[in-house]
Design a protein around this nucleic acid. Sequence first.
RNA 1: GGGCGGUUAGCUCAGUUGGUUAGAGCGCCUGCCUUACAAGCAGGAAGUCGGGGGUUCGAGUCCCUCACUGCCCACCA
Length: 951
Amino acid sequence: MPHDLPKAYDPTAIEDHWAEYWVREKLFAQPTPSSATEGAQRREARSGPDAQSTFTILLPPPNVTGNLHMGHMFEHTESDILVRWRRMCGDRVLWVPGTDHAGIATQMLVERQLTSEGTSRQQLGREAFVERVWQWKRHYGGAILGQMKRLGTSVDWQREYFTMDERLSVAVREAFVRLHEQGLIYRGAYIVNWCPRCQTAISDLEVVHVEQKGHLWEIRYSVVDDLGRDSGEFITVATTRPETMLGDVAVAVHPQDERYLHLHGKKLRLPLMGREIPVILDEWVSREFGTGAVKVTPAHDPNDFALGQRHNLPSINVMDSTGHINAEGGAYAGLDRYAARKKIVQDLEEQKLLAGVKDYTNNVGHCDRCKTVVEPRLSTQWFVAVNKKPQDGEASMSELAIAAVKPDATGNKAIRFTPEMYEKIYLEWMNNIHDWCISRQLWWGHRIPAWHCAQCRKITVAREDPTVCAHCGSAQITQETDVLDTWFSSGLLPVSVFGWPNIDKNNRADFDAFYPTSLLVTGFDILFFWVARMIMFGCWFAADVPLPDGSPRPLAESVPFREVYIHALVRDANREKMSKTKGNVVDPIEIVKQYGTDAVRFTLASMASPGTDIAFSVGRTEGYRAFANKIWNAARFIFMNIERAAELGVTVDPAALGAMPTAAANAPLEARWVVAELHSTVAKVNASLENYRFDDAANAIYQFFWGSFCDWYLEIVKLRLDFSETADKASTKAALTTLVSVFEAALRLLSPFMPFLTEELWHAVYDGKPPAKSIALTRYPQAHADAIDKNALVKIHKLQSLVSGVRTRRKELNVPEKITVPVKVLEWNSSTGGSEIVSENLGFVKKLAQISDIEFLSDKCEGLAWYVAGPAEVVVVYEATIDVAAESERLTKDIAKYEKGLASAERQLGNEGFLAKAPAHVVEGLKKQEAEMRLLLEKARAALENLKKGN
RNA sequence: GGGCGGUUAGCUCAGUUGGUUAGAGCGCCUGCCUUACAAGCAGGAAGUCGGGGGUUCGAGUCCCUCACUGCCCACCA
């Protein structure tokens, strides 16, 4: 019996059921168009008048190692609301899920496992280790996707990918080879950020700078004379990393620095190492900082490296991959970098070469992944030359990526950011972008398709694994051991998930239908890591895929997505960033278990105002669980009435459901009103979602459902639901029809926000015989302006204030809730139409305000305690000792309020400038306000007088 | 060192191109187990919109300035 609902909403069983149903029934699958022609047609449809007919979105792939946290749930909720909304609006929606192999993170995790088993990746060897990671991935990877299924995320599970799947790996390889052919990938020895713990190079983006207290050591380098003897003179240099001095090859001073003019061309003795190093001149050196003399360590500092290049200096790498001093470090070889630092400082001090130690705070780079202090280190790596033009006159990758975002001459943008502020941040970064270090010294990932030749030392880069060197034909070739940065593969996703690079006339339906994607929903933390790379790669590689008609693809069609929505961060209730170490992580699954997915989704949606982080508080979620329960109970009420009506032979015509309800001009006031409210709410919700205002949309629905539908409409309509034998069945049926059809439409309206609850109740509305497999496949409510009966809105509003006024008055008079009392009504201002509306709607006014009888007066009788209630003045007749003090306080307060309102109106109306310049409706409004305030003030003053007199 | 946000009720936040008496949820206070719902109903209290100055007939909204706060970017040893 679908209509027999338990008294309180219990989400658990219901959610499990529907989550499983949605996946099993493949409700959100969007298959590949059956032919290339169809794909092309869909593409056409997108640029035609029905431009939104396809809505494609990629799920930012979570790491395989990940577990779902609040940030994911927030991101997925926002995306899912948009996706469900667009789907219900009739778009052909595709949301593609997948997971990222997450090179470093996953390798670290499996390595930790090996350690606990007493072995290591080195002992296993590369092949066995990689196999081991695959095993792990097959077993545990993608836990997050399982959690998403439970939360009902409406992705197309048929299209789930993993970034190391064969077809995506093909794309990675093609991209690498192509860029290499275009001269945009190069290999060389440069200073890179090196993590001694992960033992790999990391990109600039993977370094987080943390301000740290440290020291600035001042070291004296002895000047040697022409005969190689210490002259007794010193140059003092300052450094924050004394251990790097082992690799010093020079000391640089500014050429015009007068202090050092006499030392130009001289040599210095490098302390501890004893070798002689030159004094070099370079304008880069700042005369103001420290002593104006800089030690030069090309192998361990990016500036020094550049200096070394300019002056043809050698680079001496004194550290190994684990951060220990190597053989180049003489007596310090084998020491850890910090042990070496300590010993070096000690030794310098003993040799009286330490001129001073100062406290110094500077920014120290840490590995984003493991928080180890990063070491700038010279090593051979692979780079993408993002600023290089492949040919003269062509654009570089970064230039394209800028053009895709920057408004063109007509103000159009191929990619639009929301909030708009991120456009600036993105452009700023892209304008200053450096070459991208893409090689990682890991085993888990896409291995770089390059082979080194032992004979000629040259490199062969190829689409197919080569057997011989492309340059000398030697068979002595070995593959590069490095793998690619994880973001290299994820940057390709928008093209690769739709079949790139294998796009030909028989295999391009997906690409034509779904590329470019419509929207990317993501966090700003991966704006540069991922969003920027997708834009670079998308613009670069998609440009080579002609449009279906064979014409070249313009930039606007090459971009990976047309819109980027950057969401905020979810913080804890105290606005602290959630982190495991702080222990303030809110596990979404736990909260979901307690309050239900819908309540958590609604919390996130209602707090999601752009640009503001979310301070997640369980209190809000409790409130929205109550909201879900409220709707549940409204449904129970409705179902109860449906059954009672059925006994009388009154049923709702199924044709009345599934569309936007309307009300005839002669329908009862509350019917016209609730329909008008629904339509205006629908308009507001659609408009809000269009602008990513999830909060506005959620609040509008909440307000309608609870504030209008439940609090007022249901209470009023109860009077119409007459099931007695003598009842007018036609009017009962009409009332029931409005009730059910508005509820059904409201369920559809709410569905993207609360998919589970609405699915359950929607099926119940249709008593187990729904017109579709799911509410998610029905049409989203659309508003019609002519269905909004403004007159009904105004009238009900007046009646609401009258009812509230009487209720307030009753409270003031301490009328017990159960007692109904007579009320006298006087229209206090002819323009309000107060008595007329009341007399037209006596029934529910009396019911809602608990009035036994209403008497309309045309004149004010003295001696009565008049009270302003909306459009009328009322007297609540109840014999009770009036609390004079309280009454007087209330009136005094009212008077103050009215005086303020009056003064404000008078001040403005008395101002000629205002009258001359303000728009008419504002002036009109103020005049009305002035009149009203004056009247109210008069009444309140009189009442106060009266009160005093009677006392 | 650059750049970008934020500051509105006890808390978390809205406030559309400047325009009538600044709103919501939660919390708080009071009264109600009214047959859809106590996860509820009804009523209520609560804000000099961070400080100062300016533009304007009119400023929470625009400009300047200060304070506090958060974030991003940056190779000065």
